[in-house]
Design a protein around this nucleic acid. Structure first.
Lengths: 338, 338
DNA sequence: TTGAAAGCGCTAACAG
DNA sequence: CTGTTAGCGCTTTCAA
């Protein structure tokens, strides 16, 4: 790494005939500096092509104005979308974003170590695998953490997540009312609280109308795995007449498989429900009935919360559960007397 | 921002009964230090929960081990995928990733300023709007830049991109051979060299068999816009019997619109070809004929190049054009005598 | 191998 | 309002 020795505030100061700190003041808000010197400095700075070194600034202010974003599952459209929103939001607040893509349920520990070293001001986490000891470590270090779309029972970290239980509950009762009998749940990752809560909701929603969930298969939030799970579901009777997938991403995989590998019609032969309401769910080919989580709201809440915690050094963990909206489209058979 | 005063190498030194520099040496590779002291230090470090402050390290080494990633169009699955790959690759090389999501063709200048201030070691750019003056500025600062999936005629920056022209050329000749007569091009952003080259290829490929592209509409790489463009294409005769979309993302929008709004069959009534070969193209519902760009190869080349340039302080711009692979699926009508 | 000392480029008191 | 001064936490000579 050799590059031209960078231009420092000292160089600018010299050229402008002022002190180095005068230069510094020109580039920080609410520092008292006269119009006149400011002009001289800015002029010199421009001539030299000077830019304040934010590393040096971070070192002294002990704040990098950087937030770590931890995520996985980029293949599920839901995440790129929240990534985009979150990034725009943070940029607007003048925070930088350090991105950490973690493999599925990988060696989170290594990543955590790097995050902690990187002196971020806060952590926004959209990945399941945060053990409580890891979380504790963050809290000890004094770095605020907020979990998005995740819900762990560790008290130390803040979290914003959807009302997965009631989302699932709605699906359960809706499916029950539709007269479905053989209901299957296509689960997400085993470690995912989100998937578990949706399942619990489904079971209770079904039970409220005297039905039950007949079978549960693992899809792990993965497209291909959802496909095999669907195949497996239809490998021998009794065949499901409704499948609730823990994500739209998987629900689409189910529909594809149903239609093209299994020759089943949706919703006539089997009903499919998803969760998230990603853009794909609305595509005319699918018209997927699903449960909407508001990405906007989720990101808004999470980022606001994180920024507040950073600003105030306020570490009380707060949990925000967001309401969820059933989106009725055409992937569920309408009720008919039989 | 107040947090517990961080644990520094000084603290560790004190506890271990060694000098501060001894501690530093323990955490840097190939520094001479005896097993014995190293053990003591590591022990003390663990007890205190010490982690080297990478900001301070960056300040002195003048290298942040950070790379800026600039992108947009996160709604097009292609980009999340390259994002994921790139991030894994850089993480493996022990680089951090600073993410900058830029709006469509937004005020790139503001973003650039922030990037330059953030002292990144290199820039990987997947967004079109890099004016040559901006590029020049990077080069002046001595920060290597590589453009991915973009091809500007500014000589100063490196770029790795696909052979868009021949991709388009293949599509043109394939469509011509299929006996299509009314061929439409659904273009990407006006500012996109990529889209222009694909178009040029299409035109020449068609011409090689005595055909021509009848009409060109703007889709700007956007799903909804691609939908309206498709509608527009069929608002009055002559109707296209083939549409080449500059991205799979748009091609899917075309198919959806054709099937569900226009009641046209694909490929019987109209053929559709895309570009990228994102996972969706292979879904049974679409079986989109397309031109594959290898994300893996692109990312591999681009990251390797960038890292090399950073390491060697080698700023000669190099361009790598990657070959492209036609993927024949079922969205193009097979040739039949008429 | 080790410690002392000199900064990296900047901000933040503190005087003037 | 402005300059002087003292570090932020670390790496890196330089002697010992």
């Amino acid at each position: 790494m050799k590059r031209k020795p960078a231009i420092t505030s000292r160089d600018v100061a010299e050229r402008a005939g002022v002190s180095q700190s005068a230069v510094s003041r020109c580039f920080s808000t609410n520092a008292s500096i006269s119009e006149k010197t400011k002009l001289k400095v800015l002029q010199a700075a421009k001539e030299l092509g000077y830019r304040p070194n934010s590393i040096a600034r971070s070192l002294i202010t002990r704040s990098s104005r950087t937030i770590a974003l931890v995520l996985s599952h980029l293949d599920n459209m839901f995440y790129p979308l929240v990534l985009e929103k979150a990034s725009l939001r943070f940029q607007a607040e003048d925070y930088h974003l350090l991105l950490f893509v973690v493999p599925e349920e990988g060696d989170f520990i290594g990543v955590m170590d790097r995050i902690l070293q990187s002196q971020v001001d806060g952590i926004l986490m959209m990945s399941a695998s945060l053990t409580s000891s890891l979380a504790q470590e963050c809290v000890d270090t004094g770095i605020p953490v907020v979990l998005i779309n995740r819900n762990v029972d560790f008290a130390g970290v803040s979290q914003v997540y959807s009302d997965n239980y009631h989302g699932g509950y709605w699906v359960g009762s809706y499916l029950a009312m539709g007269g479905h009998e053989q209901i299957a749940y296509l689960a997400g990752l085993k470690s995912s609280s989100t998937s578990r809560h949706r399942y619990q909701g489904l079971v209770d929603g079904l039970a409220s109308l005297g039905k039950q969930c007949q079978v549960i298969v693992q899809g792990d939030y993965d497209f291909e795995q959802a496909r095999s799970a669907t195949l497996q579901l239809f490998s021998e009777p009794p065949y499901p007449d409704a499948i609730f997938a823990a994500s739209d991403h998987m629900a689409i995989a189910v529909i594809e498989t149903l239609r093209h590998d299994l020759g089943r019609r949706v919703p006539e032969d089997v009903s499919v429900v998803g969760f998230d309401d990603t853009p794909i769910a609305a595509w005319p080919s699918y018209r997927l009935t699903t449960v909407r989580q508001s990405v906007d709201q989720m990101v808004e809440e999470a980022t606001t919360l994180l920024i507040k915690q950073i600003r105030q050094g306020d570490f009380r963990a707060v949990s925000r559960m967001l309401p969820v909206t059933p989106i009725l489209r055409d992937s569920v058979r309408q009720f008919t007397h039989e």
